[in-house]
């Protein structure tokens, strides 16, 4: 258990001439919740997209459970147990809630447990079972986030990345969703990475934190020992 479940080492990535990520490093332990916070455009989304295999890094390494997954394609990374809830939920709008969830168990490793996992997901989000026949495109923002989380859970991940889960949701729904995230973490011992702009809530939930600014990691530490003044400086780069 001493080895971290996810290790990101000196990752560089960019778009054309523009470098969005410079020497980014961090690690997540088994069963831990960490948060990556930073301003819009700090490179958080690029970082997690690169980890998840949606974006190719120019250099650096990503190790998941000791295995090098840096150059693997997104679908191979998912089947290894690293899932992501993308920004803006990205449900399959024309498919029913039920089909959306079933899509989550597409990897062969997850397929044989699909029924069991589905029951688990419906227990976690009973509201989804009530509307399982409805196309995902007709749901509200919060419900769509639940579908996206449920879909990610269907792959039975060992580590789960949430990219700006609270974006555009009302405080009450955010609170509820965070409660579920903690539940997922405690019940299944799933490691969690929270990408957030809502610093306060993320820090309250996470065990440790990393602050990103202009593609670099500028500050990290334990959430319970955070120095508000230093955090503010790192966050805004002043």
């Amino acid at each position: 258990m001493s080895e971290p479940i996810l290790q990101v080492q000196e990752l560089n990535a960019g778009y054309g001439d523009f470098s969005a990520l410079e020497q980014a490093s961090f690690s997540v332990d088994h069963g831990q919740i960490i948060t990556l916070i930073g301003l819009n455009g700090a490179g958080k989304t690029t970082l997690v997209k690169t980890i998840a295999g949606l974006h190719k890094p120019t250099s650096g390494k990503v190790l998941f459970m000791g295995e090098d997954i840096t150059r693997l394609s997104a679908e191979k990374i998912v089947s290894r147990g690293l899932s992501m809830v993308p920004q803006g939920s990205r449900c399959f709008n024309r498919m029913s809630v039920h089909d959306n969830l079933l899509m989550g168990s597409f990897p062969k490793s997850a397929r044989k447990h699909a029924k069991e996992t589905l029951r688990h997901v419906y227990e976690l989000f009973p509201v989804l079972e009530e509307m399982k026949k409805r196309p995902a495109g007709t749901l509200s923002g919060g419900e769509r986030q639940m579908v996206a989380i449920g879909r990610a859970l269907m792959a039975r991940p060992k580590c789960l990345i949430f990219d700006e889960i609270s974006l555009g949701l009302s405080p009450a729904i955010i609170k509820d969703i965070y409660k579920r995230i903690i539940q997922i973490n405690e019940n299944d011992k799933t490691s969690v990475i929270l990408i957030e702009q809502d610093t306060q809530r993320a820090l309250r939930t996470a065990d440790s934190f990393y602050v990103m600014l202009k593609g670099k990691m500028v500050l990290s530490g334990k959430s319970n020992e955070v120095d508000a003044e230093m955090l503010k400086k790192a966050y805004f780069g002043i």
Binding site: L54, A74, R90, F92, R94, M95, D99, P107
Partner: peptide
């Protein structure tokens, strides 16, 4: 069908 809806999200489901 999922790929037709959203290729990136489909890739993320494996």
């Amino acid at each position: 069908r999922a790929t037709a809806d959203d290729t990136d999200a489909a890739a993320l489901t494996g």
